[in-house]
Simulated scan of single mutants.
Amino acid sequence: MDNLTFRYSVLLVEGLQVTPQSNKLTFIFLLIAYVFVMVSNIGILIQISAEKSLHQPMHILYCHLPVSDIMGSTVVIPRLLKDLLTDPSERYITYVECVFQAFFAHLYGTTAHTILMIMAFDRYVAICNPLRYPTIMSNKMIVKLSAGAWVAAVVPVSVLIGLSVRLSQCRSVIQNHFCDNPSLFKLSCESTMINNIYGLTFTVVLLTSSLGWVLLTYLKIVMVCIKSKNKATNSKAIKTCSTHLTVYLILIIFGFVPIFLHRFSDYAESRKFGSVMFYAIPPGLNPIIYGLQAKEIRQRMLKLCRKKVYSN
C-alpha cells in the first residue's frame, strides 16, 4: 500500500488509551453493556409489536427510542470492542466507514432528542386535552410526528457530515476513540471555520429547542395538574411524565459530560470514557425505566415470567 492510498483511503484510530490490566475489564463491561442494550431494547420492541393492547400512540411513539438506542450502540460499541483486541498500531478504518460511523453516531444523539420531544407532545395532549386525545393523536398524526422526528435529525446531521467530507485531507490519524464530526474535519489542513460555526449552531439549536419544548410542555402539564382536583388523574399524570422526564434527564446528563470535559485537555481520556457511556448507559437504562413504569408492559412481562415458571 503506497503512502497516497493510505493517506486518503485508510485511517488509523487512536482508540481508548487503557492499561493492559484494565483492557480486559473494559472489554467485558462494554460487551455486557452492548448485549444488554440489544436484548432489552429488542425485547421491548417485540412486546409492543406482539401485544395489541400496547398499540397505543404513547407506546408506538416510544418504539422509535429503542430503534435509535440500538443504532447508537451498534455503530460505536462493536468497533470499540474490536479495537480493544487490536494492537494500537493496527486499528485501521477506511475513510468511508469512518464517515458512516460519524453520521450514525451523530444521528443517534439527535434522534434521541427529537423522539423525546414528540413523546412530550403526546403526554401534553393526553393530560391537557384528554377528551380530544383520540382525535388529535390519530394514526395520521403519529406518522407525521414519527417522520418529523427522523427527518429533523437526518437533514441537519447530513449537512454536518457533508461539510466535513467536502474538505481535503492532509492527516491520516483519527484523534479519538471513534469517528465523529470533529474527527473528520480535523483530518484537513483547510479552514474549518464553517464547520465550527455550523456545528456550534446545530448543537445550540438542538439543545435549546429540546429543552425549551420539554420545559414548555411540562409547565403546562403542571398547571393543569394544579388546577385539577382529581387525585387519581394527577397521580397517573405524574407517573407517566416521570418516566419520560427520567429518560430525558439521563440523556441530558450523559450527553453533557463529554461536552463539558472537552473544555479541559487534562481530562481527554475521561472525556473518551464519558462519550462511550453516552452510547451505553442511556440505551441500557431506557428500556428498564420505561418497562417498569409502563403498566401494560410490566404486566405483560410478569405474565410471560409466570408462564415460563409454570412450564418449567
Results as ranks from 00 to 15, higher is better:
54 L>G: 12
54 L>K: 14
55 H>E: 01
55 H>I: 04
55 H>M: 02
55 H>D: 11
55 H>P: 00
57 P>G: 03
57 P>H: 07
57 P>F: 01
57 P>E: 04
58 M>I: 12
58 M>W: 09
58 M>G: 06
58 M>P: 02
59 H>W: 03
59 H>C: 09
59 H>I: 02
60 I>D: 01
60 I>A: 07
60 I>W: 09
61 L>S: 07
61 L>K: 07
61 L>R: 02
61 L>V: 05
61 L>T: 03
61 L>H: 04
63 C>V: 06
64 H>E: 13
64 H>P: 08
64 H>R: 12
65 L>V: 07
65 L>Y: 09
66 P>R: 00
70 I>M: 12
71 M>D: 04
71 M>R: 01
72 G>A: 07
73 S>I: 04
74 T>C: 09
74 T>P: 03
75 V>D: 05
76 V>A: 05
76 V>R: 00
76 V>H: 02
76 V>S: 05
77 I>A: 06
77 I>T: 02
77 I>M: 02
77 I>E: 00
78 P>V: 04
78 P>Y: 03
79 R>T: 08
79 R>Q: 11
79 R>L: 10
79 R>M: 13
80 L>P: 06
80 L>I: 14
81 L>R: 02
81 L>G: 03
81 L>F: 06
81 L>N: 07
82 K>N: 13
82 K>W: 15
83 D>V: 02
84 L>P: 07
85 L>Q: 14
85 L>N: 13
86 T>A: 05
86 T>R: 06
87 D>F: 05
87 D>I: 03
87 D>S: 11
88 P>W: 01
88 P>D: 08
89 S>W: 14
89 S>Q: 15
90 E>V: 02
90 E>M: 13
91 R>T: 12
92 Y>V: 13
92 Y>C: 11
93 I>Y: 10
93 I>L: 13
93 I>E: 13
94 T>F: 03
94 T>D: 06
94 T>K: 06
94 T>H: 03
95 Y>A: 12
95 Y>N: 12
95 Y>R: 15
96 V>N: 10
96 V>K: 08
97 E>D: 15
98 C>K: 03
98 C>M: 06
98 C>E: 05
99 V>L: 10
99 V>R: 03
100 F>I: 14
100 F>D: 10
101 Q>Y: 09
101 Q>M: 13
101 Q>K: 04
102 A>V: 03
103 F>P: 01
103 F>M: 00
104 F>I: 01
104 F>V: 04
105 A>R: 04
105 A>M: 10
106 H>E: 14
106 H>T: 12
106 H>D: 12
107 L>E: 11
107 L>V: 09
108 Y>F: 15
108 Y>C: 12
109 G>A: 09
109 G>V: 05
109 G>K: 03
109 G>C: 05
109 G>T: 00
